[in-house]
């Protein structure tokens, strides 16, 4: 019974990956439209507060320079499973307020 459950987990996992990769292509147009719009910084502050604070105390924008935030946000994109758009929004907010 347990083996069957894990078999299901494996199949479900593979399906999930495939779905995400395929869905991302369909989502690309929307993402392109969102990339550099005027609301980016406003979305960024929201994403920063919601995602970063769910694990640790919020680190203020002034702690680092623009180039440092670029690397740190990429690191956190992996660590916190941020979407690419969330990472860009957060980076924009941090770079505008440091």
């Amino acid at each position: 019974m347990l083996n069957k459950s894990f078999q299901f987990v494996r199949v479900a996992g593979s399906t999930l990956v495939l779905t995400i990769v395929l869905a991302s292509a369909a989502h690309a147009e929307t993402t392109d439209a969102l990339q550099g719009d005027s609301g980016q910084s406003a979305r960024g502050v929201k994403a920063w507060a919601n995602n970063c604070a769910s694990c640790h105390n919020l680190r203020p924008a002034k702690e680092l320079r623009d180039d440092q935030w670029r690397v740190v946000v990429s690191h956190m994109r992996v660590r916190a499973d941020l979407t690419g758009q969330e990472a860009r929004d957060i980076l924009k907010f941090l770079q505008e307020n440091n």
Partner: peptide, 12 residues
């Protein structure tokens, strides 16, 4: 080594 495949998937 983490490769950003797209906005929703990163290969680690």
């Amino acid at each position: 080594i983490d490769i950003f495949l797209n906005d929703y998937a990163t290969l680690v």
